[in-house]
């Protein structure tokens, strides 16, 4: 997902007997669906895992601006340009909300930014894939936002108050993102032969990377078990992936587009589709930095941050001068 393979600290969920009284009281609150707030006591592992997870989620929003931003200047109509710009702007906003949530855990946004820029922190693998034709902008909304929403909707109930509140706001704002994406793909699937070709091409390239967004199967992962006990992860990766496939296949059929999977078949017994796993070797390559766009994405973010340093410093220096002048005026008046 936007936060993939977040490792919790330690070796997995503790049993009740192993817990200290503080830890037991903490787990009781979580089990009773009482939100954890910034100043409440929390296990160090919970705090660290959350910083990592929320940070990764925030970074994904920020880097996620780039593949779609790639088409803002080439959007084919004024209305499409406005919609796309508003959507990519929303992503900046969502990054901001999430950074703010993480900041309540005792880390600054600048620290998190540095971690992203020097490669210590990760972001979702999906944003290391290119957007090559206009239908990709539709497919990103339809598939990528569609996959993200699968994860984000349950996260509104996550145990950490500020994270939960950020997710509620994000989900509210995101509701138009997937629809606008589907709307683009629909127009193209019903359009000229070239447009249909673009739409199918986008689906072909983005289908498996979208499935990878949920991360490899984690049914045996101790990290996931701990995160689920803490309610900072609500569903397993496989559950969400299955739900996504089941939702998306009929949508593709409606458009007359073909999902690039020969093994895709309805399974009456399980009440869902059977489908091919993505190439997990490719997934780990992308995580290691070898995706098609890793270098470009990081170079763009680094350049934006470095080029902006004088602006951030300049505006801060002016604010400090103003504050000092105001103070001096007050003192002179006394």
């Amino acid at each position: 997902m936007y936060a993939q393979m977040v490792k919790s600290t330690g070796s997995g969920a503790k049993s009740r007997e192993e817990m200290t009284p503080d830890e037991a009281a903490f787990q009781d609150k979580i089990d009773a669906d009482i939100k954890i707030e910034p100043r409440d006591w929390m296990p160090e592992g919970y705090r660290k895992t959350l910083i990592r997870q929320i940070g990764q989620h925030a970074h994904s929003e920020i880097v996620g601006q780039l593949p779609e931003g790639n088409w803002i200047t080439r959007a084919p109509t004024l209305e499409r340009k406005a919609i796309l710009l508003a959507k990519v702007q929303d992503e900046a906003g969502h990054g901001l909300y999430l950074y703010s949530a993480a900041e309540t855990l005792g880390i600054t946004r600048d620290e998190m930014t540095e971690q992203l820029l020097d490669g210590r922190a990760k972001y979702s693998s999906i944003f290391n894939y290119p957007t090559l034709n206009w239908a990709d902008i539709g497919a990103v909304g339809w598939l990528v936002d569609g996959a993200a929403i699968m994860n984000q909707v349950p996260l509104q109930r996550t145990s950490y108050g500020p994270y939960s509140r950020a997710m509620i706001r994000i989900c509210k704002e995101e509701s138009f993102h997937q629809r606008q994406g589907y709307d683009i793909v629909m127009k193209m699937a019903q359009g000229s032969p070239e447009q249909r070709k673009m739409a199918q091409d986008a689906l072909n390239r983005l289908w498996y990377p979208s499935l990878m967004m949920f991360g490899p199967s984690d049914k045996d992962s101790v990290h996931s078990a701990q995160s689920m006990a803490w309610k900072i992860k609500i569903n397993t990766n496989d559950e969400l992936r299955q739900k996504f496939v089941d939702q998306t296949v009929p949508q593709a059929e409606f458009l007359g587009l073909t999902i690039p999977d020969e093994n895709l078949k309805w399974n009456e017994e399980k009440g869902g589709y059977d489908f091919s796993e993505p190439d997990w070797g490719e997934f780990f390559d992308v995580l290691k930095g070898n995706g098609p766009c890793n270098q470009d994405r990081m170079a763009t973010r680094n350049k934006a941050w470095d080029d902006g340093a004088w602006v951030r410093e300049g505006l801060m220096a002016h604010a400090e001068k103003k504050r000092a002048a105001k103070l001096a005026a007050q003192q002179a008046a006394e």
């Binding site: 920020i62 601006q65 780039l66 200047t73 990054g95 350049k303 934006a304 602006v311």
Partner: peptide, 19 residues
């Protein structure tokens, strides 16, 4: 102005320029 989207010196400015 839209060319700045995703590349501004700080998130708050990115959002403001998009507006």
């Amino acid at each position: 102005v839209s060319e700045w989207c995703g590349k501004s010196p700080v998130l708050e400015e990115d959002i403001a320029l998009a507006n």
